[in-house]
Design a protein around this nucleic acid. Structure first.
Lengths: 268, 268
DNA sequence: GGACGACAGGTCGCATGCAATCATGGGACT
DNA sequence: AGTCCCATGATTGCATGCGACCTGTCGTCC
């Protein structure tokens, strides 16, 4: 019944050279191909992507708005570092924003939405158990483990997004997306212990329970605790350097800036 | 000692054609020159501003990221409506975000910052008293009242920004700025009753007190209450339609879309 | 030897041009 | 009369070109 404001077509789900460039550059940043401190040249990227500088430019502006790169006038875009302090900051903000989302969801969620939340929680639990089993069997080697972790990550994202949808507050969704949290800490479940996974399962259960019972304070505090608890595991994952993968875009390596990390950070 | 991430040069404080266009378009939107539902033509704006379409385009992208306009591929940018529901949503989010900011400020604020906060609160109080006096004398007619309200608005903004600065979380600042809250509800103090102003003064006092005492829960809840209390006055101010002012940019009026409001809102 | 100033290289910011796409209006057909 | 289709006009999306600005280097002077 509520009137919806217009849809918000994120570059993630759009066509066109700009969105393509946006996705590709973001992948390269979170994947470690473009390490923090490096300068991103419009021209080089445009050539690599087979497009002109214009869409690349607009993509970089979008990434700058999300805090992934920093644009210096007449110099270009530089990949920003991602420290443990950033992880802490993002998780603190996620805690309050998603907490508010859970609170609203507890107030406004329909029965169908609650049903969907239970299913999402169930799917997360399945994926988590599968990962635990895989580890227990010692086969946590490569592809299988990676796939299982991806499944957990996906199920987790689905659940959290479903809560936000049930909250009915598009701005919350937009703000959380612009935190680039999902993008940069997508690998966090690699560092989850079995205990962490169990904790997540219980947390999700409490959250959905609070929403089902329309108990706003319970839903909010459960979500807050859930995210704050996840912060520690995330901090662990922040310490492993994003390996300069060998995948594609090798040409950029030549453009590696001589001045990295040290300079340009403490500019007042 | 804490390493600072790069500065975040918002278009507000930058030079160049893009930032100029950004500021101008935003002013026209919040000032009512560009009413919700209207299509904003790149070409027309570029001609008016005396620049090319490129910087106008980038400015519109930035405004879309802040939720002021909506960009439809191959059709252009349309000014989004601003309903009472939006006000509610923005204030709810502000409550939790600025509450978190106050909490962090209570933990991390230095003595100098606390001193600055007291001064800001004092300045707000002065401005508020001046406005009350002006109204009591019945001279709340035009220019004087407008100036007094502007002073209150400015002092309020200074205080809230100072809290965020003391919080030491640049992302909080960025997120709040991208809410376009300051931009669109800058006129809110016009609708403040004397009681509202008094309440604000007290609220500010409690917030700063909580920060000074390093009482994080107090600071957080004081800030939350302060903003949630302000929501009602803000809702009042949302109801007055932004009058299609006569100021400048008259040419745009011809481009007024035949299709406004109704269509394109409920797209799933 | 160190510091200052001019020069060169390179990149960005903006202007302009062209093609793809969408909305609109008229006409033909049912 | 109503509906479908196509042609037309307008607008965006992207490509390209040029000038402005910054950085780094070299030469000169103190």
């Amino acid at each position: 019944m509520g009137l919806m404001t217009g849809t918000h077509p994120h570059p993630d789900e759009e066509a066109g050279a700009r969105s393509t460039a946006y996705r590709r550059i973001r992948e390269d940043i979170v994947g470690g191909v473009l390490a923090p401190g490096w300068w991103v040249r419009e021209g080089a990227l445009a050539e690599q992507l087979g497009v002109s500088r214009t869409p690349v430019r607009e993509a970089l502006n979008a990434l700058a708005a999300e805090g992934l790169v920093e644009i210096v006038r007449h110099r270009g875009a530089r990949v920003l570092p991602w420290t443990m302090r950033d992880v802490d900051e993002v998780y603190s903000i996620r805690a309050v924003l998603e907490g508010e989302g859970a609170r609203l969801a507890a107030i406004r969620a329909s029965d169908e939405e609650v049903q969907g939340l239970w299913e999402s929680a169930e799917r997360f639990e399945q994926a988590a158990r599968e990962l635990v089993d895989l580890r227990a069997r010692g086969r946590g080697g490569d592809a299988a483990a990676r796939g299982a972790v991806d499944a957990v990550t996906e199920a987790n994202g689905v659940l959290h997004r479903a809560v936000l949808t049930a909250a009915g507050s598009p701005r919350l969704t937009v703000l959380l997306r612009s935190l680039s949290s999902e993008a940069r800490i997508g690998q966090v479940f690699h560092h989850y212990t079995d205990a962490d996974l169990t904790r997540s399962m219980v947390g999700h259960h409490d959250i959905v329970l609070g929403i089902e019972r329309h108990d706003a304070p319970l839903a909010e505090s459960a979500m807050r605790s859930h995210i704050l608890a996840a912060r520690h595991a995330a901090a662990r994952s922040a310490s492993d350097a994003p390996a300069p993968s060998t995948r594609g875009t090798a040409q950029i390596d030549r453009d590696r800036a001589r001045e990295g990390w040290g300079r340009g950070q403490g500019v007042p």
